[in-house]
């Protein structure tokens, strides 16, 4: 299979006081082109460090990372990597440069020196894709959290990336804003074939992804399809993560002796409960 991101035996360490902390240690991971991957882990598990490694904001102390075949240590091509890997961060206010939405979207393509007519096309396209085209002349300050994050996603889209990284992009949003952002990410993955890397600690967001990678103290604790991962109850509990509500319920029922499969969504829980005798 074609991998858009290849991480080979990467380690990152930093000094804190007198001890050496391994933010990432000997991590090897491939991300397939066009897939939707969730990276889960509690605070300090190394997931944000991993995000910074993927767009060459941070270079590994050892090991290598390839983005679409380009080594991230290749300084001359750092901007190529950054235009391929778009990042959306946690706080929407701290990633917007301009006051007016369409000006903010133009920032990325302008930096790349793309011709004016092409920027116009890209900005309009990106705004329509995230459903914010009618708001293009409004001030970013007046939007809701979910709308701001959708604008931030559009700003990344205007650079026509191959990979979209959502680094805890839903952490500061209310449930409605969260589902707005998740729906947008899913749509981009399905319709525009953009690889999405979702970094989060909300298990509920990870139930319908292609692959889950669970990080714990800089190492991969487990990975696989959502069902495969959530069945490893002990590992999940050890990494300090919480199960999706439906999964939690089904696990408890199994613990009480009911014959019920491990489920991920509310719908499949209802189905499983209805089949109980």
């Amino acid at each position: 299979m074609d991998n858009i991101i290849e991480i080979n035996d990467v380690s990152v360490t930093y000094q804190k006081d007198s001890s050496v902390i391994h933010a990432i240690s000997h991590l090897t991971l491939n991300i397939k082109r066009g897939s939707f991957v969730a990276i889960l882990g509690r605070n300090g598990s190394g997931k944000s460090t991993l995000a910074k490694l993927l767009n060459a904001s941070l270079l590994p102390d050892s090991g290598e990372i390839f983005v679409d075949g380009i080594n991230t240590t290749n300084e001359e091509r750092a901007f190529d990597i950054r235009s391929k890997v778009g990042m959306v961060f946690q706080n929407p206010d701290n990633q917007m440069v301009a006051t007016i939405i369409e000006d903010d979207l133009a920032f990325g393509p302008e930096n790349l020196g793309i011709p004016r007519e092409e920027i116009r096309k890209r900005v309009d396209w990106a705004l329509k894709t995230v459903g914010m085209y009618e708001h293009r002349m409004r001030a970013t300050q007046k939007l809701s959290g979910g709308q701001k994050q959708r604008v931030a996603i559009a700003a990344v889209l205007a650079m026509s990336p191959e990979v979209l990284i959502l680094d805890e992009a839903t952490a500061m949003l209310d449930p409605r804003g969260r589902s707005e952002v998740m729906d947008t990410a899913r749509k981009l993955n399905k319709e525009k074939n953009i690889t999405v890397v979702l970094i989060t600690h909300y298990m509920d967001e990870a139930v319908d992804v292609d692959e889950i990678v669970v990080l714990d103290s800089g190492c991969i604790a487990t990975k696989g399809s959502p069902l495969e991962v959530f069945e490893q109850i002990d590992i999940i509990k050890n990494t300090g993560l919480e199960f999706p509500t439906a999964t939690e319920t089904s696990l408890k029922l199994r613990g009480l002796g009911y014959d019920i499969p491990v489920v991920l969504t509310d719908e499949s829980l209802v189905e499983a409960l209805c089949q109980l005798k």
């Binding site: 901007f79 990325g108 302008e110 930096n111 790349l112």
Partner: peptide, 13 residues
Amino acid sequence: ARCYNATQNRTKL
């Protein structure tokens, strides 16, 4: 992350 300073020949919308 959005390639600020990527090129000297910045364009304008």
